[in-house]
């Protein structure tokens, strides 16, 4: 029974990382695509919006990793062995991004170093989700070859393929989209609102294009993606719900609603994650030899799962209310003296 609690938390951690971490990465991606004239303003709005919660946003990744290595050691070690290279690149991105963001906010002297921090920040904001997407894509692309004998097929072709890369770009576009939608609500005047709406539209189009690429790549790489997505009633329903909510969301954006559009964007991410995980549940890694790594069959010892589940339940009692209150506190428009930091 506890295994389902653990799986639920794993899924929730992935979802929250996609939504909150994604919006966080997206803020950097948006900055990358902002003209120089508007950069500093975008940066200020963005920082005010994410400053208090950005550390917490990235904790979801740690939670997901801990769940994997405690509860599903075979899955964790298979992925970390065969996807070593993209994981290292992603880690480099995480280091660079986290430190650059902190440095630019806490450097007491404002000079040319700021430009260096900004450069590092925006590029790592792009590269990190790109490789996160590649890793996620590689898990289901069936290219991980545990029987491989040469370096390239074991450690490079496991992730370097059209499908995984397309998923990487799709992830980047989703992050940018989430951030743009979030920032619409943070804009201070008409011009800023317009500019973020424009960005949201751009990112939305980019996501649709990248999503199309994913489907094309799945055909050339002979991955039954169409079957996975549309092969079940849940998949069809989720895709329809996401599409309808997208249309509703754009209508509400034009109407000037700020809060509900965030909820809808989050809902779309939930639907996307649902469709991509539902069909091959409980398998989360598909191997080249046709085998699977399954959350059920490859779970760790029962006692370990039990302990993990209890730890997660207790942890969530503390984390969720505190996090909720944190977000609520800094949502209110009377943002004390944030500029000071």
């Amino acid at each position: 029974m506890m295994i389902y609690v653990v799986m639920g938390f794993l899924w929730l951690a992935l979802l929250l990382y996609l939504v909150m971490g994604g919006a966080d990465f997206g803020a950097g991606i948006i900055e990358l695509f902002t003209s120089n004239a508007n950069k500093s303003r975008t940066r200020r709005i963005m920082y005010n919006a994410i400053g208090p919660i950005w550390e917490a946003n990235h904790m979801w990744l740690i939670i997901a990793i801990v769940i994997l290595f405690v509860g599903f050691p075979v899955i964790y070690t298979t992925m970390s062995t065969y996807l070593h290279i993209p994981l290292v690149i992603m880690l480099m991105g995480i280091i660079a991004r986290g430190t650059a963001l902190t440095f630019r906010n806490y450097d007491a002297v404002t000079d040319n170093m700021q430009r260096v921090y900004n450069k590092i920040f925006v590029y790592s904001s792009f590269i990190t989700p790109l490789f996160l997407g590649i890793i996620a894509g590689s898990a289901v692309s069936g290219r991980i070859d545990t029987g491989a004998t040469d370096f390239l097929s074991a450690y490079v072709y496991s992730w370097l393929n059209l499908f995984s890369v397309a998923i990487g770009f799709f992830t980047v576009a989703l992050c940018g989209f989430l951030a743009a939608i979030y920032l619409i609500g943070e804009a201070n005047d008409e011009a800023e609102t317009k500019s973020f709406i424009r960005k949201a539209r751009f990112m939305n189009i980019a996501a649709v294009v990248a999503g199309g690429l994913v489907f094309i790549a799945s055909v050339t790489e002979q991955i039954p993606l169409v079957e996975w997505v549309f092969g079940s009633i849940i998949g069809v329903l989720a895709v329809s719900a996401a599409s309808i909510s997208l249309i509703v969301m754009w209508y509400l954006i034009v109407k000037g609603k700020r809060f509900i559009i965030r909820v809808l964007a989050g809902f779309q991410m939930t639907m996307i994650l649902l469709t991509t995980t539902y069909k091959h549940y409980p398998n989360i890694v598909i191997l080249k030899n046709g085998g699977y790594l399954s959350l059920i069959a490859d779970r760790g010892a029962d006692k370990a799962i039990e302990g993990l589940g209890i730890a997660l339940l207790i942890g969530s009692l503390f984390i969720l209310p505190a996090l909720g209150y944190l977000i609520y506190s800094f949502q209110r428009k009377d943002k004390g003296d944030l500029a000071e930091h």
Partner: peptide, 27 residues
């Protein structure tokens, strides 16, 4: 992993709380 994972699961929680508290404190 499964054997000595317990402190890591709890550490994840503690660390998360630290991040949240730091957000409250700094801002």
């Amino acid at each position: 992993g499964p054997i000595f994972g317990m402190p890591f699961s709890l550490e994840g929680t503690a660390f998360f709380i630290e991040a949240i508290a730091l957000g409250f404190f700094l801002y």
